[in-house]
């Protein structure tokens, strides 16, 4: 058996300690919150340390940090299972209590079982869940192509209608700031599409002038996007990154405990 330092440490930190902590927590409630914090501290520290400590046991290809990434991929799969369990629990409860909108829960569960069933069937039969060797879609891909994709596209396409309506009703030059926003939006909307060429379609003699003006507008749009927008976006991204770093530090240091989902007194 390969007893590398990194591997053994990971097993102790993320397997033995949580299991021992779970059993101890049954008798000592105070430990219930401390063990997850302990796990959280090391799960946060190891990837950070791997950036600054270029040693094999932590940053090497089979070191603690890459191995933790591998575990995270596996954990993410289990998180999906947890999500499915949650969906089942909530919707079966809704159906059994005949709560408002319960027929939608029936549809949701049918969708879940049919799609999931086809996926599992594809996995077991070796057929897969994509396009079969003869070019025909597998049952899972069929559901994806003819149910899931049109439904999602339909919901998203409704945005165009609401955005147009909202722009007409709410986008008003009420004050200086709103006017600047309005002018910038109009310029970008004009510059991102060949609008002038479209307007000149009925008068072909105007086409060259429209193309020339459209090019100028395109350059102005690019400048707005690249310079004022780029600068503002950089500021927003840096601000958000600092916020995320401080939040991560709070989690690592055990100050932020909201993710534990503990109630009062825990």
């Amino acid at each position: 058996m390969n007893l590398e330092f990194g591997r053994v440490t990971l097993v102790i930190l993320f397997a033995i300690v949580p299991i021992v902590g779970f059993f101890l927590g049954l008798r000592a409630p105070a430990l219930r919150s401390r063990i997850p914090i302990f796990v959280g501290v090391f799960a946060g520290l190891i990837p950070i340390l791997s950036m600054y400590v270029p040693r094999k046991f932590i940053a090497g290809p089979t070191g603690m940090s890459p191995r933790l990434d591998q575990w995270l991929i596996i954990l993410a799969g289990f998180a999906l299972l947890l999500g499915i369990a949650n969906v089942l629990q909530n919707n079966t409860r809704k159906i059994s209590r005949r709560e408002k909108g319960w027929p939608f829960s029936v549809v949701l569960l049918i969708g879940l079982f049919v799609t999931g069933g086809f996926g599992i069937y594809g996995g077991i039969s070796g057929q897969g869940i994509g396009i079969a060797a003869d070019g025909t879609p597998t049952p899972f891909q069929y559901v994806t192509n003819w149910f899931f994709q049109p439904l999602q596209s339909t919901i998203f396409s409704l945005l165009a209608f609401f955005m147009a309506s909202a722009a007409f009703r709410a986008f008003r030059a009420r004050n200086t700031e709103a006017t600047i926003l309005l002018v910038a939006a109009v310029l970008i909307m004009m510059g991102r599409v060949p609008l002038l060429e479209l307007l000149a379609v009925p008068i072909p003699s105007l086409q060259p002038a429209a193309a020339f003006a459209s090019q100028g507008l395109g350059k102005l749009t690019e400048w707005i996007m690249q310079t004022p927008n780029g600068a503002a976006q950089a500021g927003i991204i840096i601000g958000a990154a600092l916020g995320a770093a401080s939040m991560a530090l709070r989690v690592i240091l055990g100050i932020e405990r909201g993710y534990l989902g503990l109630g009062k007194g825990d």
Partner: peptide, 19 residues
């Protein structure tokens, strides 16, 4: 892009009219 251009034009007209 043809559809997008026409839609942008329509939204711009609506914006101008509304304002």
């Amino acid at each position: 892009m043809d559809g997008q251009t026409v839609l942008h034009t329509v939204i711009l007209l609506l914006l101008v009219l509304g304002n």
